[in-house]
């Protein structure tokens, strides 16, 4: 499932120290639920993103468990406090063991 998986995140470039910001994340992934059947009636095996985390400068913001009922191209939105300048790290964990990461820097100002 590693092919064509593309994470995208929306994080403001700047915030005031201590501000709350909204973060939106999307990752392209078919989220095969394990309940669909192919044309010959065989169950298509489950293959999903099962966990998503967001950390800022090593501290956790959210840690989400995802199940097969999450839609194709999982979308997660949440709010983070920005105590200082630094970097958000976003991590998606695939059933097949693959891990996708992306980061976003944020400045104070």
């Amino acid at each position: 499932m590693a092919s064509g998986v593309k994470p995208r995140v929306k994080v403001p470039k700047k915030a005031g120290a201590g501000d709350a910001i909204t973060i939106k994340t999307l990752i392209s992934h078919k989220m095969e639920s394990g309940q669909r059947k192919d044309k010959s009636g065989n169950v298509i095996p489950r293959s999903i993103i099962n966990r998503f985390t967001c950390d800022f400068n090593g501290q956790n913001v959210v840690d989400v468990t995802l199940e097969p009922a999450i839609s194709t191209n999982p979308y997660i939105e949440f709010e983070s406090t920005v105590p200082e300048a630094g970097e958000f790290k976003f991590t998606w964990y695939d059933d097949d063991g693959d891990v996708y990461e992306t980061t976003k820097k944020i400045a104070i100002g």
């Binding site: 910001i21 950390d55 956790n60 839609s71 939105e77 406090t81």
Partner: peptide
């Protein structure tokens, strides 16, 4: 986590 600014989240 400790840096969550609110206990709000959205998904599809």
């Amino acid at each position: 986590g400790p840096l969550a600014a609110s206990q709000d989240a959205s998904t599809r």
